[in-house]
Amino acid sequence: MSSAPGDIVRFDNVGLRYGTDREVLSDVSFTLYPGSFYFLTGASGAGKTSLLKLLYLAQRPSRGVVSMFGTDTVTLPRSRLPGFRRRIGVVFQDFRLVPHLSAYDNVALPLRVSGVREDDLHMPVSDMLDWVGLSERAQARPASLSGGEQQRVAIARAVIGRPELLVADEPTGNVDPEMALKLLRLFDSLNRLGTTVVVATHDVHLLRKVPESLIMRLDKGRLSDPTGALRYPPRREPVPGSQAVP
């Protein structure tokens, strides 16, 4: 099934079950439009992480169609998936930094995987570390970083490759409210540069902090559209000079 050229992600009647258990996600259908900012909310255990796993291609659905960047990824051969993954930035709930690599090397990892030359790599990685306020800790290993610092390394790594889609799983879960707000602003400014952002959170207070955000609510594996915004999204104007949105 092909999707309209305007959307970046499209789920059609997606169901997911682990093994032979009951379905963790049922009849999930939605479309993500480029340049929008989405919150994915729901109680703990509602299936937020599971839905994000489908989004960042760590999991195939048990049924239904998951279409990314206009391509049905369910029938796509395994060998074509890495190319799609490189267009997606992920902030994992548990950060998943590589323990024996410095903050610098962790942030550089996506670029190295993509085959960027070492000469072309130094500037963007340093800039990115500077941006998340970690220039001083560039050579530190994750174990010697605080939770908030690890969080920022994880975010820097997720956005360094300038992904078209940014997926963050409870990115404010381990930090104080002040840091949570800072991180949200960070996602917001990325979003204004054209990146489509999906942030999963069970913290409803967060939703109000990004005024133009759209809300997807999961309840026991079923998606509701409380604001109707998933069907009729208000368009958001990108900042001039930012990434062009097709």
């Binding site: 267009r87 690599l101 996506p110 070492e118 963007p124 960070l186 990325l190 540069l193």
Partner: peptide, 29 residues
């Protein structure tokens, strides 16, 4: 908040080989 830096586009679509010492460092064990 400052604008986020913009890494060279194309960085993500490059498909060259990731190898050598850099790659080996990933898995010291």
């Amino acid at each position: 908040m400052r604008k986020p830096p913009l890494p060279a586009k194309g960085a993500v679509t490059g498909n060259k080989r990731f190898r050598g010492t850099r790659a080996a460092q990933l898995v010291p064990d």
